[in-house]
């Protein structure tokens, strides 16, 4: 059952290629510096990072006696700990993600990233966001958890209203271990998404946004006199969609996309846009490889 689920999602070749990748964090996380906090993973290789004047209470073992011999001052060595990375997969599961198969696509994308992280022994957690954090898959490490992650993600149903700001804020505050946060969403929230993303950044998450769009969001396949129903708010809007209307829609869409991208760039948030009919393999292996995966 489990392996069948895996095969439904990914081909073995794709998994094999994913296995050779690992997530890249663009920043070392505070609190991982050696000596500041007790590491749960002692005995791992340690990389020299910097010196710092000795302060009372510092571990004498880390005092660099060569420096003391030369300068007659006490300095302690600072090390960059190769601590495992905490990976947060934040999947928007609001009703709008159900339009055009965006949620299914986002779930597969999240699973692929989760697989990469699990294989490289990162701690991976996943949550579904609606107007708040709706469901969570507790953080775990190791390849064997991939099947349960997959099951969790494949069970996700698009339903309910979005409250990206609130959901992300509460997640940022509630998370004790900041790390790499990948937000998979269409960002279509009447209240906006900026506050939520900012909250993650403020909590020192390394935030990536994978902006998932459906083909019909980009090229509406309909025309004429229409009553459009919002998938989340059930709000109706009557439009007459002709060439001009379509043009206007495209313009607004482009403004929205540009705004989202500009916001992300200015907040050091990784931004990638993907239309849900793109092949996952291609997107992960070519586009994400440059920014998140190595």
């Amino acid at each position: 059952m489990a392996s069948r689920t895996v095969q439904e999602f990914f081909t073995p070749e794709f998994l094999a290629r994913l296995e050779r990748l690992s997530l890249v964090s663009r920043r070392p996380f505070r609190g991982r510096l050696t000596g500041e906090r007790k590491s749960p993973r002692k005995g791992q290789s340690v990389e020299f990072f910097d010196y710092r004047p000795y302060g009372v209470g510092d571990d004498l073992r880390y005092v660099d006696w060569n420096i003391f011999g030369r300068l007659e001052r006490l300095h302690v060595k600072l090390f960059l700990d190769e601590e495992d990375l905490r990976v947060h997969l934040l999947v928007d599961a609001s009703a709008s993600m159900g339009v055009g198969g965006k949620l299914a696509y986002a779930a597969r994308l999240a699973a692929a990233l989760g697989f990469v992280a699990l294989v490289s022994l990162e701690r991976v957690g996943a949550v579904l966001l609606r107007d708040r954090v709706a469901q969570a898959w507790p953080a775990a490490r190791g390849r064997r958890h991939f099947v349960t992650l997959l099951e969790f993600l494949s069970r996700a149903r698009a339903d309910g209203a979005t409250g990206l700001n609130r959901a992300l804020e509460s997640y940022a505050i509630g998370s004790r271990e900041p790390g790499v946060a990948v937000v998979l969403s269409d960002l279509l929230d009447p209240a906006g998404f900026e506050r939520g993303l900012r909250a993650l950044v403020e909590r020192r998450f390394d935030v990536h946004v994978l902006h998932v769009l459906a083909r019909e969001d980009v090229d509406p396949p309909f025309g004429g006199d229409l009553r459009l129903r919002d998938s989340e708010t059930a709000e109706r809007r009557e439009v007459t969609l002709d060439a001009d209307g379509l043009q206007a829609y495209r313009l607004r869409l482009q403004r929205f996309l540009d705004g989202a991208e500009r916001f992300c760039r200015s907040h050091e948030i990784g931004y990638r846009r993907v239309v849900s009919d793109t092949s996952i393999e291609q997107f992960v292996l070519s586009e994400l490889k440059e920014v998140m995966l190595a």
Binding site: L188, L226, L228, R229, D230, S231, R237, R252
Partner: peptide, 11 residues
């Protein structure tokens, strides 16, 4: 005709 769209934000 009624159509469901992701969001009427853009419409």
């Amino acid at each position: 005709r009624e159509r469901t769209v992701s969001s009427v934000l853009l419409w």
